[in-house]
Write a protein that binds this DNA or RNA. Structure first.
Length: 573
DNA sequence: GCCGTTTTCGGCCCGACTGTTTTCAGTCG
């Protein structure tokens, strides 16, 4: 029994209560209890008294204990008898919340999508008080649209759209300031829509231009405070623009950056201090005076807080936590994973070096695929030795950058490595990674990873879980054990900066840092453009509360080489 | 159901929008 299961159980109870039409505060009490567990660093076993957690009281404590003991609870059992399970997915339909759904169930016997559609089409819904013709239209439209697009889109699929809109906003007349907000700004791995905040003194002028942005398929709403459009591309993406007075820009940006939990915490804290936060500013509850700000820094400072970077604004725990000095893009001094035309990359060794120099990097590793990966034109020992010659020449030619002769070596299905130790000892930098047999058991996968991690010539494990956000789950890894092994063996853990991967993910990065792991943020670039993914990678690291010193590619070339030598045991302590 | 530097009752984050009403509930972010 782990904490995640308990949290899920409590949240399920909340959903059922919602549908049953229970008191809203009772519902949120279950959600708060779940959150309290999530926010606590300790595992279930380490928490002596559940009741001591803020948000867990007599009732929820009993439920949690029952669940731990029995694996089920009377509370939920009873609820599932009272509320049809088919209602739950209907909560996802736009415009339908717990209360309306509950009425549809109790008064019309709606229990699932089919009965809901039937009730709408037969005219039963529109005569219900509180519903009308428009509600029915909206519900039917929501049913039709549901599932035509994934509920949330992987961040990688909306980054290009963001860039396109950003460019257009630069030249939109009447825009004084603008910024992206929402889960995109917090760098969630997937997002539902894009939210832009625009400061303007002339909202009508701006709104008129917004509805004419490139590829607008539908104008959902157009007012002087908000414009919503659907833009077509790979997917249809809903884009909100909030038009605000310049004075309110910062508090509106904060408000719509969220997360919801973060905002709740901020407001609770402000209230304690005698203030009321809204998107328009911070209001003194007594005098009614409204404070506005030039920057988010000032806003947080006003409430006596350190600046909280958007990436950290998730659970609300960040509000009263000490905020560490997070790694920044400017700290990055190198990139230790990239490919060239020798395997499946688009650019030559020298081209990748030159591009890396333009980023001001002091050190990079050229790491083409190894021979096992034939589809990627993987290199055998002979070709790697040849490539090493080229790299040696490059190191002579360019004095401002150190180029490590590396390899991204496959970990074979049986746990063997693609090269023997004798050969590996010739390499400057050895990455090991899994590219095959993703469907093995956790035991088999862990055996493969362990063989690699514990090999003294393996410096780093790349994209540890192999996942592709929204597309592929990855192979089963016991990440706690993986991190422990990496720490024990001084093996670097990669944060793969490719926005399709972001692997290891932020929550586990945080755990890795706490256990003392060394992390590298690498682009795994297969062409020029992908070297730019470092930006996203750094943001993902920040989301995992990662500090500069944890990240090996913020170190100097000398320090990195020292680390690598020490790992191979060439240097004594 | 939870909680207390307005403490055992009475509140629990805030505001816009929509669609339904004729002053407001529900939903959403």
């Amino acid at each position: 029994m782990d904490k995640k299961q308990v949290i899920k159980h409590l949240e399920t109870i909340a959903i059922y209560l919602e549908l049953k039409g229970e008191n809203a505060f009772k519902i949120s009490a279950y959600r708060k209890a779940a959150q309290a567990l999530e926010r606590d660093d300790r595992s279930l076993g380490e928490i002596d008294d559940l009741g001591s957690l803020q948000g867990v009281g007599k009732g929820t404590k009993a439920v949690i204990e029952e669940f731990i003991e029995q694996g089920k609870t009377n509370t939920l059992n009873q609820l599932t008898e009272e509320v049809p399970a088919g209602l739950i997915p209907l909560l996802k339909l736009q415009g339908l919340g717990g209360k309306k759904l509950s009425r549809l169930y109790h008064e019309l016997g709606v229990v699932d999508e089919a009965t809901l559609r039937e009730a709408c089409e037969s005219g039963q819904v529109e005569v219900l008080s509180g519903f009308g013709k428009k509600s029915v239209e909206k519900i039917l439209k929501a049913i039709d649209e549901y599932g035509s697009r994934p509920e949330r889109l992987p961040i990688s699929s909306v980054i290009p759209l963001y860039e396109v809109i950003r460019t257009q906003l630069e030249t939109t007349e009447g825009v004084e300031r603008y910024a992206i907000s929402g889960s995109y700004r917090r760098l969630r791995e997937d997002v539902k829509d894009l939210d832009f905040i625009i400061a303007t003194k002339n909202p009508e002028q701006v709104a008129n231009q917004l509805v004419q942005l490139a590829n607008v398929k539908e104008v959902v709403s157009k007012g002087t405070t908000k414009v919503t459009v659907v833009i077509t591309g790979e997917w249809d993406v809903s884009v909100d623009f909030r038009l605000v007075e310049p004075d309110a820009f910062v508090t509106t940006l904060h408000h719509f950056t969220g997360s919801k939990d973060h905002n709740v915490e901020m407001r609770r804290l402000a209230k304690q201090q005698g203030y009321k936060i809204s998107e328009y500013g911070v209001e003194d509850s007594e005098t009614g005076q409204l404070h506005t700000f030039e920057s988010e820094q000032q806003f947080f400072e006003f409430l006596g807080l350190d600046y909280i970077p958007p990436e950290l604004r998730e659970t609300g725990e960040e509000v009263e936590s000490k905020i560490p000095e997070l790694v920044e893009l400017a700290d990055i001094n190198g990139d230790l994973h990239m490919h060239t035309t020798w395997s499946d990359g688009a650019q030559s060794v020298e081209e990748m070096i030159n591009k890396s120099r333009s980023y001001g990097y002091e050190i990079i590793a050229i790491t083409d695929h190894s021979k096992y990966l034939q589809v990627a034109n993987g290199l055998n020992e002979t070709r790697l030795r040849k490539q090493r010659e080229v790299i040696r020449e490059m190191n002579e030619k360019y004095e401002d950058i150190t180029v490590l002769a590396g390899v991204e070596m496959d970990i074979l299905p049986n746990g063997d490595l693609d090269f023997d130790n004798q050969f590996l000892s010739e390499m400057d930098f050895v990455i090991a990674s899994i590219h095959s047999h993703f469907n093995q058991s956790e035991e088999e996968i862990m055996n493969r990873l362990e063989q690699a991690i514990s090999n003294p010539y393996v410096d780093m494990i790349a994209h540890p879980t192999g996942r592709l956000i929204g597309r592929r789950k990855g192979y089963p890894v016991d990440l706690n054990r993986f991190i422990d092994l990496a720490v024990e063996n001084n093996t670097i853990i990669e944060l793969n900066a490719n926005p399709n991967r972001l692997d290891l993910t932020w929550s586990w990065l945080r755990a890795a840092q706490e256990k003392g792991a060394t992390i590298a943020i690498n682009t795994d670039a297969h062409n020029y453009k992908m070297l730019d993914d470092m930006k996203v990678g750094v943001q993902a690291a920040r989301k995992g509360w990662i500090e500069k010193d944890t990240v090996i590619n913020t170190w100097s070339a000398k320090e990195i080489q020292h680390f690598l030598k020490k790992k191979k045991g060439e240097l004594s302590e």
